[in-house]
């Protein structure tokens, strides 16, 4: 069954691609900023999968050295992704803080509503300058 072999060999990669594309779509298509950040999270998580799956070896175990085991999965991607997760939550927190400030300044977290307010230009300008000076 060569077809099944191909599926087993690449299933993780395909899921990675699907998650990455879904995250990209949410980030590009949705106007809501919280949803954009969730989409960014999905995108980011697909990258974790992309890095961790090649590190796995069939029959291997977690990379904690013990005399009873000889085959270990690859620890290097684990280290890189550990870094990525923590940096990810830091950027997420910063993004959410910006969303809160945007909501306070414009009263909305929808991109369409924020960009489509030409009649309140003076008010919006005044508020945004207030944000800058704070």
């Amino acid at each position: 069954m060569p077809a099944l072999d191909v599926v087993i060999a690449h299933f993780n990669h395909w899921i990675t691609v699907v998650l990455m594309v879904a995250g990209l779509y949410v980030v590009v298509a949705r106007g809501n900023m919280v949803k954009k950040l969730v989409g960014l999270g999905v995108f980011q998580t697909s990258v974790y999968l992309l890095y961790i799956s090649p590190g796995k070896i069939f029959g291997g175990t977690a990379p904690i050295i013990d005399p009873r085991f000889t085959v270990y999965s690859n620890p290097l991607p684990h280290v890189l992704i550990l870094t990525a997760i923590v940096v990810g939550v830091a950027t997420l927190a910063l993004g959410l803080a910006l969303v809160v400030r945007i909501n306070e300044a414009y009263g909305s977290i929808e991109e369409d509503e924020i960009f489509g307010k030409p009649d309140e230009d003076g008010d919006g300008g005044g508020e945004s300058s207030g944000v800058g000076s704070r």
Partner: peptide
């Protein structure tokens, strides 16, 4: 399942908890 226990622990506490 992919043997990345450290990463899994971080993802569970950071991704599902703090985020």
């Amino acid at each position: 399942v992919l043997d990345a226990v450290d990463v899994a622990m971080t993802e569970a506490s950071v991704g599902a908890g703090i985020s």
